[in-house]
Nucleic acid binder design. Sequence first.
DNA 1: TATAAACACGAAAACGTTTTCGTATCATAT
DNA 2: ATATGATACGAAAACGTTTTCGTGTTTATA
Lengths: 341, 341
Amino acid sequence: MKPRITLKKIAKEFGVSISTVSKALKDSHEISEETRGKIKAFADYYNYKPNSLALQLRNQKTSVIGVIIPEIVHHFFSTVIQGIEQYANSKGYSVMVCLSNESYEKEVSNFSVLTNGSVDGLIVSIARETQENQMYNHFNALIKDDFPLVLFDRIIDDVQCDKVIIDDIGGAFKATNHLAEIGAKRIALITTQDYITVGSLRKEGYLKSLITNKIVVDENLIYKINDNEDLYEQIEKIINVPNPPDAILAVNEIYAAIALKIAKKRGFLIPSDIAIIGFTSGLISEFTDPSLTSVEQHGDLMGRQAAELLIDRIENTAPKEFQKEVISPNLKIRESTLSMS
Amino acid sequence: MKPRITLKKIAKEFGVSISTVSKALKDSHEISEETRGKIKAFADYYNYKPNSLALQLRNQKTSVIGVIIPEIVHHFFSTVIQGIEQYANSKGYSVMVCLSNESYEKEVSNFSVLTNGSVDGLIVSIARETQENQMYNHFNALIKDDFPLVLFDRIIDDVQCDKVIIDDIGGAFKATNHLAEIGAKRIALITTQDYITVGSLRKEGYLKSLITNKIVVDENLIYKINDNEDLYEQIEKIINVPNPPDAILAVNEIYAAIALKIAKKRGFLIPSDIAIIGFTSGLISEFTDPSLTSVEQHGDLMGRQAAELLIDRIENTAPKEFQKEVISPNLKIRESTLSMS
DNA sequence: TATAAACACGAAAACGTTTTCGTATCATAT
DNA sequence: ATATGATACGAAAACGTTTTCGTGTTTATA
């Protein structure tokens, strides 16, 4: 790469000082029209642009925000990034994306890279492994230094910072209510392991709804999927049983789509034999047959709000209580829960 | 945010010079064991980490690579990012992601932000608007300065830089051959406008296959979708006609999934009445019913290769011919093309 | 004509780091 | 006693920028 042109080189060219060049390029009235003109022409010709590293160092501000997420090949997370990028960009910030791949070690290493002065703040959704083992020291270290930090979706209650979550309890409650309304009696829940906070919150909403609807809770209808094992096999055990459920609430789109596929293969009619709802974020629900009713998560809105909170925190240094924004998911009713005959 | 601790502050604390502190922290033998010990303990206690901006400025190297893509809520692009991030990370680089939203203006503005010294190189897939109007000056400016640049997927032939593409012609050829083999005679193509290079290349492969299979080309079976208008309406006009095609090749997953949905609604049996193949990247094809045969694009591999080319270009400054890596897509056969009865 | 103001520019510090070179102090060898 | 060498540190430049504070020269005012 050719070395970029700098103030120093321009100064040398005209035998003036660096300050003169800097001022000339900023149209300062301190510099004569003549000098200004020739310097600007020269700089323009050589396509001078101030080195942003130098500026960042001088201004003690990078205008970059770091984002650490568990994965990116995931409709929800990519939607969040879109939301973040959009708002950040409108405020003059760029976005640096790092992936933890659900690994604690990589999350910590990302923290370490990003908090060395290369970003003004951090937006994070916690890796599964981190949540599983509850190792939060890297977060506490940031908090101690008042480093601007926003957690979203997968959060830690104990960490004092801004947070954005969706109302998982409410979403699951709404969805389960809907299943009950269309006549379901034996509503299964396909969820994750307990340490995934969103999974256990959705379970809470599910339970709350069962109680509200006076349906007896049957622990045998609650299935905790292990993401590291074969999903089809695990979900098959829910449907291919003597007394299958008449409705399923799945905490994500994939689980729901797989359940649908298996149920159809077993000869069940959807929704008349089994109604299905999934939490969603992607496009799959729209293209299954029947299409899947789903709890929509509004990832872009989450991203936007996280970015708003973070940038506000960065730019307004006055102490301020930490916010917790809660986004309400909505139920998109499709064919998989059209009233059961 | 609390001000971070610096060499200067540590130096002041012990009444030594900055150089001494710097050397002590690097375990230099120039510094006495005693001084070294107390400085390191102090630095450790206050969690000293070198300011990366200062290092980047001094070393004239950021270890960051910039990525500009049209959108991120898109399975293919997020897969590419994953590939890039993974390889880049293994080589000690971070990734800065910017979105052009298919807009020329935003692409240029991203260029401008990223090429001011904040990244060591750029990986780009061109915005639709840029391709449509063939405005490539921002690329030429980079090339002139030998700025490390890799183009992927949507490329420009005229720009002299490293490139990674998939064999679109070959993929479409293979897919169309497959349709011909299972007995299709009237194979429709659902593609994009001509200025999208991948669209026109896939059309080329389609045409090549028709000729190979001695099928007469029928221009009426080639449909160019306008992404800004209603997709369902446009695709309906392909299927809901007096003499519908007996097979469809769609240049992306969404077009294929919509075609499938419409065909089923019209009462066609898939694949016996109409066989369907889509180029793909996402999960939709797996969850439709019947599942969709698809041309798989290996986005992560593309990302990885792009990152390899870029980092090689960054680290080995010796002149070297520009590479063009071509990735072969493979045909994943699913239910939508099981041999037509 | 003396003085004040305007003009046009330069020096230097600051951001935080690394690294080369210089040097004062002390111990050792001749 | 002198030269040599090691030891332990500091000064300063360099990366590229902005900005404050001088300062010398010219112009306007009393």
